[in-house]
Amino acid sequence: MFDLTLFFISAVLTVIGAIMVITTKDLMHACIYLLASFLGMAGLYLTLGADFVAAIQLLVYVGGVVILMVFAVMLTGGPHAQKQNKFGMIKTALMGNIRTYTIGGLTAVVVLLMMVKLYISIFKNYTAGELPNYLPTVERIGKSLITDHVLAFEISSVLLLGALIGAAIIARPRKNRIN
């Protein structure tokens, strides 16, 4: 009962948020709808018994990525930035127009058909067996990370270090080279 309620609320939050991300005309609002979608995703992870993944989802996305996105929106002139480049050549609205949405929609239909083709056998053949109980996953994930997946764990730390240094170097203003 409780699981079903949580699932329903989270699913509605996720789907509505994702749809609003692509329909809203305001970039800042899109970030907030993305936040709603991420919160719903955390709830979905909980209904799947993945407590650690849900907590990390909250920590990384809600605490990090969304604030970073909103911050970048502000540092690049806000959502109401100029609608053409400095030569005045391109009149396309920054958030897309009818043509781009048509292209996107058609591609989405193609991708959807492909995914339906992939999923149709699962929908037909899969029957839910006895589901395991919700168990704490933190210990198992921790042990798995330092035994089976230790190489991926170390490589991801190197990746994060590289991302940190790279982002700091790229975003540093170099005044003498701005043309």
Partner: peptide, 17 residues
């Protein structure tokens, strides 16, 4: 979610979007 992401990538012209 995936379809929404594809549409957002193709339809938007703002890099952050």
């Amino acid at each position: 979610l995936f379809i929404c992401g594809v549409i957002a990538i193709l339809a938007r012209k703002n890099i952050i979007a």
